[in-house]
Amino acid sequence: MKTTIRNNWTKQEIQQIYDQPLMELIYHAASVHREYHNAAEVQVCTLLSVKTGGCPEDCSYCGQAARYHTDIKVQALLPTQTVIEHAQKAKNNGSTRFCMAAAWREVRDNRDFDRIIDMVKGVNDLGLEVCCTLGMLTEQQAIRLQEAGLHAYNHNLDTSEQYYDGIISTRTFDNRINTINHVRKAGITVCSGGIIGLGESHIDRIAMLLTLATMPKHPESVPVNALARVKGTPLENNAKVDIWDMVRMIATARIVMPKSMVRLSAGRIEMNETEQAWCFMAGANSIFTGERETLLVTPNPGVSEDMKMFQTLGLKPMVKHMKDEACTAH
């Protein structure tokens, strides 16, 4: 009998899971993982910044915020054909999911959004899962994306509701939830997780997982990011995230959201092969890779390095992607 999918978790229950002795927690998570997933498969995803920098938000961790003095160069929205070519390369390198990111506060109904719609259609025609992360969305904009063939929309919570104001002041936690609700209502799958290493407490991490795990439907994708410390941002001097904190977070997410893809996201560049192996053992079954060896604007392992790691660990890229769980018509 499989572990029951629950949406009525309490904070105390999640804390009890999170606080288990580490080896017990990993064993528990690995067992749940094997009930719902093939533990030998990892979905390979590619994330491309289609519009970089110049964002008016003040997210303390983000080098793309216009107000911070970083080395990141502002780049206008890429040509549609350029994006399609990147998607084709990603597919050739084994990716089954292609995510396009634009450094916007929110989507505006203009020619740039029309171009994003064309990009979604083009990537969808390649047979890839198409994901976008474009900032806040209205319900009507979400419907347009769904009709164009968008499979998933990424909109991370980042941290707990209680700690949120200490990291971002230009939008609210409720703004995040509203966008996720618009995405879900439009019939697009939800990609939502968070970042650890922002200065938050373990209680904040548990509270963020509680928000995700008590949604009426769990996010189909839950990225777990370690803070990428970008020079010039307010958090550039934060301590490197401890690998066991990362493993503990991944394992807890796996247990409380058994069917979700748990994505080992930002921060892999500072993890060696052994540390990443522990994350896979704890239930992570997706990574971001790419021929440009960047994740948005921060360093990331490249395709060849990841394939070598897979060979060492006896893992293989997931061939069948998740379109059978995809969007329902609006």
Results as ranks from 00 to 15, higher is better:
residue 21 P to A: 01
residue 49 S to W: 10
residue 218 H to S: 01
residue 330 H to A: 14
residue 193 G to Y: 03
residue 277 A to V: 08
residue 122 G to N: 10
residue 194 G to R: 00
residue 19 D to H: 10
residue 278 W to Q: 11
residue 172 T to P: 05
residue 45 C to S: 12
residue 8 N to I: 01
residue 14 I to H: 00
residue 175 N to L: 11
residue 285 N to D: 08
residue 39 A to I: 13
residue 251 A to N: 08
residue 137 L to H: 07
residue 63 G to H: 01
residue 293 E to L: 14
residue 76 A to C: 13
residue 181 N to L: 13
residue 101 A to I: 12
residue 326 A to D: 05
residue 127 G to K: 06
residue 286 S to E: 04
residue 63 G to F: 03
residue 227 L to F: 04
residue 58 D to P: 06
residue 231 K to T: 05
residue 22 L to G: 03
residue 60 S to K: 15
residue 227 L to Y: 00
residue 246 M to E: 04
residue 28 H to I: 12
residue 16 Q to G: 13
residue 254 R to F: 07
residue 328 T to L: 15
residue 32 V to A: 06
residue 224 V to N: 00
residue 166 G to L: 11
residue 249 M to P: 05
residue 92 N to E: 08
residue 218 H to T: 01
residue 159 T to L: 09
residue 138 T to E: 05
residue 102 A to W: 03
residue 233 T to P: 09
residue 292 R to W: 09
residue 124 N to D: 14
residue 211 T to S: 14
residue 168 I to D: 00
residue 210 L to R: 04
residue 172 T to L: 05
residue 86 H to M: 12
residue 47 L to V: 13
residue 271 M to S: 08
residue 61 Y to D: 01
residue 324 D to A: 15
residue 193 G to I: 05
residue 311 Q to M: 10
residue 321 H to N: 12
residue 318 M to Q: 12
residue 257 M to S: 01
residue 299 P to L: 11
residue 266 A to T: 01
residue 6 R to V: 00
residue 117 I to K: 12
residue 330 H to S: 13
residue 39 A to W: 10
residue 73 K to V: 09
residue 137 L to Q: 12
residue 129 E to W: 09
residue 62 C to K: 01
residue 38 N to Q: 10
residue 161 E to Q: 13
residue 136 M to A: 09
residue 75 Q to T: 10
residue 225 N to V: 04
residue 253 A to L: 06
residue 154 N to T: 09
residue 200 E to V: 01
residue 101 A to R: 07
residue 216 P to Q: 08
residue 242 D to L: 12
residue 225 N to H: 06
residue 166 G to Q: 13
residue 30 A to N: 15
residue 155 H to I: 09
residue 210 L to W: 13
residue 37 H to L: 09
residue 202 H to N: 14
residue 69 H to T: 10
residue 191 C to V: 03
residue 321 H to G: 06
residue 42 V to M: 03
residue 79 P to W: 11
residue 100 M to E: 02
residue 127 G to P: 09
residue 80 T to N: 05
residue 213 A to V: 04
residue 245 D to K: 02
residue 152 A to V: 14
residue 157 L to F: 09
residue 321 H to P: 08
residue 298 T to R: 09
